[in-house]
Nucleic acid binder design. Structure first.
Lengths: 199, 199
DNA sequence: GTCTATAGGTGGATAGAC
DNA sequence: GTCTATCCACCTATAGAC
């Protein structure tokens, strides 16, 4: 692997582990073994390197969302993506960046993060829309809205897991979301009009 | 206000705005107007000050959860707490800490965060249990699990909102969660036994 | 492209007088 | 309790030779 690639790889790891502000050029040099001169030859500033690393992390993350758009029934795909194995205590390598003041205040650094979430949201919303069409989800639920709910469950699950240093809350959070989705199957949607009449 | 109190107040604000790692003793001095000598007299290290500030932020947060335990029907209280006004773009002053490497790797600093979440979880679980008892929520839903789901929706909603620099995704996420809770009312829970028979 | 040397500024304190 | 002065390591580069 050439120096440039090695630097990006290393910075990606460190940004996942420690964030942007708390990762120094020295950390990157020491872990990668690349010298000072090379580093500043390829990336004039720390921010330039961070931008490349951020884009790499986003690219790492997006392929997994194809699970939402594969074969199988919409709900099966939704369940598969929601419940796919995730390192709860490590957190999300993209979502994490939103908590770094130097990233969130820098439109250029935040842009890849925003784009990634927009992309993931599209995937979720499409699958949820298909679930409604397939009669697996009540038609009065808003797929775009639910997409945000499910993304939030995952992002927030990481927060809970890290706080407790225990993946349990993360798994609880997503399992609970799945329970709710199942409870919202149209088969159970009897007498809604009756409930409304009581208001 | 005396220096000590002023320092804690200022550190609390800065930790909410910028986190722990990215807040320097100098920042605290400059914003608070307290001198170097006073600062190190009251708090020998930055970590000591951070711990006091963290505990203050936790204390700020917990009173609001009493909304989950007040008068009114359980679901009404759940909705009120879930939908209560929140500054989505500022994030959660407690949850934020889980993303700071220097906090998450320090058991002493992480402890107040863990305690706070445990406390909030108790409040959620109690209200959800009561909702089941009151017949507002299907009995086959697990309140402890759902409590984590709803906490995650809020914590994750902040992440989405900050990523897009728009409170919209936060509001979508929690509104979607409320939609699901309503879809999980027992009134709709007809023929559950039939569904199970099909497995 | 990579190396070593250098540099100004900040971080996180400590020392000691008042 | 508060003040000013001082300190060393580290951060984020820049310079210039090879």
């Amino acid at each position: 692997m050439d120096s440039r690639q090695l630097l990006v790889e290393t910075m990606s790891e460190l940004m996942w582990e420690r964030g942007y502000a708390d990762t120094s050029p020295r950390d990157v040099r020491e872990r990668s073994g690349v010298g000072q001169g090379s580093m500043y030859h390829h990336f004039p500033t720390k921010r330039d390197l961070a931008l490349a690393a951020l884009e790499r992390n986003v690219a790492d993350l997006l392929p997994a969302t194809s699970e939402l758009d594969g074969p199988g029934s919409p709900m099966a795909r939704i369940e598969a993506y929601l419940m796919r194995p995730r390192a709860a205590l490590r957190g999300c390598k993209v979502g994490r960046m939103t908590q770094d003041p130097q990233v969130r205040e820098d439109p250029v650094l935040l842009a890849p993060v925003a784009r990634a979430f927009t992309q993931v949201h599209l995937g979720w919303a499409k699958a949820l829309r298909e679930a409604v069409t397939a009669g697996e989800l009540r038609a009065d639920l808003d797929p775009e809205r639910l997409a945000h709910t499910l993304m939030a469950v995952l992002q927030g699950g990481y927060v809970l897991a890290i706080a407790q240093q225990d993946p349990g809350p993360f798994d609880d959070a997503r399992a609970g979301a799945l329970d709710l989705l199942r409870a919202a199957a149209p088969a159970n949607n009897v007498r809604v009009s009756e409930r409304n009449r009581r208001n």
